[in-house]
Each structure stands twice: as C-alpha cells, then as structure tokens.
Design a protein around this nucleic acid. Structure first.
Length: 264
DNA sequence: ATGCATGTTACATG
DNA sequence: ACATGTAACATGCA
C-alpha cells in the first residue's frame, strides 16, 4: 500500500499524540517487524517519553521523543498507523502500541514486511542525516535529475523509478502513473529517451508526486478518474485517455500496467 | 486450492 | 560498477 503520500497520510494520523506522554507500550516482542531489536527494548525506551515531532522521507517515518529517543517506522507492503480509543482492544497485527491520553498510537502490519527501529541521539540520527533529496524539494530540479541518471543509461525505466536512492517514495503505482502521464513505455531503457521525453519524465515525476500529496496525503482520497490509478487494477481496465484496453505484465519483477496505444 | 499483492534485501549470475 | 532474476519474508484476499 504505502508510497510517498500514503506514508505522509499515516504519519499524520499519530499527530494527536504530539505533546503527550507515553503511559504504556505494548508489543508482540518477536515479530519480524522488530528485526534485530526486540519489542521489549522498544517498550523500555519509549515508556514515559513524550512524543515531540514527526517527519517522513520517502517511504520512511521518524518520530522524535523526549530524551533523545527516536522511533523509525517503515510500513513495508501492508503496514499502517492508526489511533485506537483508550479502552479499545488491540488487534491481531498491532505490533507496536503506545498508550497516550489521546488513545493508542498503533503500528499495524499483517505481512510484517514493515520495520520498527530505535535511535538514540540529541540531533537527527545519523541514518537520517544523508538521505537523497526529496522529489518535491526545490533543489530537486532538472539539472539534479539529469545528474542522478548519469550512470544508469542501460536501466529499464520502470526499475529506475523504483530505486529509492534516486526517487525516494516512488512505488509501484506511482511509477506506472508517471510513465503513463509521460506517454513513455515502462520497458524502455533510459538511453533510448529523447531530450523531450526526458524532460517530460521529470515534469510528470513532479506532477504525480504533487498530485499524490494533494489527494492521498490529506485524507486518503483517491486521485481523480483522469489518473491511471483509478483504472489500473480493474479487470478489463480502460486507459482514461484512449478508452482502449490497458496492458499488464511483469517488468523488473513488479506487475506493471500501461496503455499500449498511448505510451511509446 | 491457486495465485497475487502500492516493498526490500540477499544472493547468484552476466 | 551495473544490471537482471529469483527467492525469501508472512498474511489476506479473490
């Protein structure tokens, strides 16, 4: 589920907890989400701390607590954040739940591809200090974009867009949306693009990220029907531009949807 | 029962 | 160094 905008949305769901003390922490200690650390260490670290701030970068989330404690979350494929009422029963895949006076701040993830990690530092943790530029930042301009692609001439576009070190936050549906909007086939290689196409790719990259933030990040509403998003998973889905059938196949290990009559 | 899923990583291979 | 393919992870859904 979660890409750039979905992550921003879920992150915002914990905002009612800001400024509140963590009265109690519940975990299911040994689930995969905790990786090398344990649920117990997370409990000990966060109990009694106050949630001060939160941020996202691409698909990652970071929560800052008092006394230099930081909680990093990645939602994987099926993770989400949710608030449960103070006396509400926790559910089956609630791996981490922080009790505050505003209710439980819950991380839920059935498939457990998500990840929970703790950092201890006064300032932003080192792991977060050197991330690539965010796509929607001002500094992520066309010149930077060209420079990013410098060594990747042979790469297939679909795979390239999914590279989190280049385009943090772009996931499967956004990559397809970007290529569809730019009218470029997902199986093309970077080296085959004309200057015009490269510029179109940059513009649609920004466009799709902005649109995703506008629609999805605010209240989890779907993008409009003019987007591929609304048609790509429907059996017999139709391209909103040509009204013709969409195609689907695996590219770079991921199911990919495109419009053969529209994309070249 | 089968196949598939908005993600990442490790590993083998070219 | 770059690129590709596969498996693995663990669960729910059609």
């Amino acid at each position: 589920m979660p890409e750039l905008a979905e992550v921003a949305y879920y992150c915002s769901l914990w905002s009612p907890g800001k400024g509140r003390r963590i009265k109690r922490v519940q975990t299911h200690g040994a689930t995969r989400c905790f990786r090398e650390s344990s649920g117990e260490s997370v409990e000990n670290k966060l109990r009694g701390r106050t949630l001060k701030d939160s941020r996202t970068h691409g698909k990652r989330m970071l929560f800052q607590f008092s006394k230099g404690a930081w909680l990093g979350l990645h939602l994987g494929m099926t993770g989400k954040l949710v608030i449960r009422k103070p006396f509400e029963e926790l559910q089956k895949h609630d791996h981490l739940a922080l009790e505050t006076s505003a209710g439980w701040l819950v991380f839920n993830d059935p498939r457990q591809f998500g990840k929970v990690e703790l950092f201890q530092s006064e300032d932003l943790p080192d792991e977060w200090a050197n991330f690539p530029l965010e796509i929607l930042s001002l500094e992520f301009n066309y010149k930077y974009f060209e420079q990013l692609l410098g060594r990747r001439k042979r790469a297939v576009l679909k795979s390239l867009l999914l590279d989190q070190t280049l385009f943090p936050g772009v996931g499967n549906w956004m990559a397809d949306e970007i290529l569809w909007k730019a009218r470029i086939r997902p199986d093309r290689r970077l080296e085959s693009l004309s200057t015009t196409e490269l510029k179109a790719l940059f513009d649609t990259l920004k466009f799709v990220c902005r649109g995703a933030m506008k629609y999805v990040a605010t209240d989890y509403s779907d993008p409009p029907k003019s987007w591929l998003f609304r048609h790509r998973w429907k059996p017999g889905g139709i391209c909103p531009k040509t009204r013709e059938d969409l195609s689907r196949s695996e590219i770079g290990g991921r199911t990919t949807c495109w419009s053969p009559a529209w994309q070249r």
